[in-house]
Design a binder for these strands. Sequence first.
DNA 1: ATTGCTGCAAAGCCTTTGCAGGCGG
DNA 2: CCGCCTGCAAAGGCTTTGCAGCAAT
Lengths: 143, 143
Amino acid sequence: MVGFKNEVAKTKSQRTTWQRELIQDILRRSEGHLDADEIYQKARQKSPSISLSTVYRNLRVFKRMGLVEQHQFGSRYFYETTRVTHHHLVCLSCGRVFEFKCPSTEHLKSRIKKEEGFKVTEADVRLAGYCPDCQQRLSVNTS
Amino acid sequence: MVGFKNEVAKTKSQRTTWQRELIQDILRRSEGHLDADEIYQKARQKSPSISLSTVYRNLRVFKRMGLVEQHQFGSRYFYETTRVTHHHLVCLSCGRVFEFKCPSTEHLKSRIKKEEGFKVTEADVRLAGYCPDCQQRLSVNTS
DNA sequence: ATTGCTGCAAAGCCTTTGCAGGCGG
DNA sequence: CCGCCTGCAAAGGCTTTGCAGCAAT
């Protein structure tokens, strides 16, 4: 059916390379929600010799290690350092990604566990719509 | 930033072709959550001359018309006919997609509207974890 | 010295698009 | 008849991979 891979295994010890430190640094500094190419561009500014594949490879490693989260909006992946649980709000007009907290998600998890016997390990709540700025700009009915 | 397209505009009247009827029929019959290629394969069984591009093109048309919903799991899109709001529960082991209701989503929408001034038009709640069968099969701790 | 990591280029995967002909209304 | 729709093939966008050399431990 779906081609889901179980990438749960915690990975073994990793080597320290400047590429990895640079990518981690970019992720930590950023406000979050960078895609692979944005990370690559920022990395190139510091070290032009880094390659896009290295960025992808390390993002995957970091994900497996639980250091970064990978989310998809539209058709690409975005990465951010793992932090307190929060969810995403995407503006369909300008594409900006906002965050919000959703404490009831925990209740949801346990409800699903109880009702369906399903053990939930990831919860992703994605809302989309129009941010205040775009509503005004587009004269969308705000009511 | 993100390359989001605003595909909100309701589309004008459409022609009736056997390809469209076939695709609609497949979507209606199915339990939901088919990807483009699965639809294509099913369609070919009935009419081998249909093309994959036609499938994609029409899924997009149906989506714009509000007849189907498009969701992404992993890195591809899945389609299902629009029904009462429900959300998805993906098993990370077997890849099966389950559904559940989440009435509190409506509250969430209005909360976001009130707190952030963000007008929410789409809400997608995706949980992932391990279904009962796989928990047993993998001897995952169920507590 | 190992052997994991990197850069490069090429391949892969899914989706979209250009084009000429065909069919629905 | 007009022009939307289709099939085909090719292109696109993003991500992954094979390979040989390099560097971290």
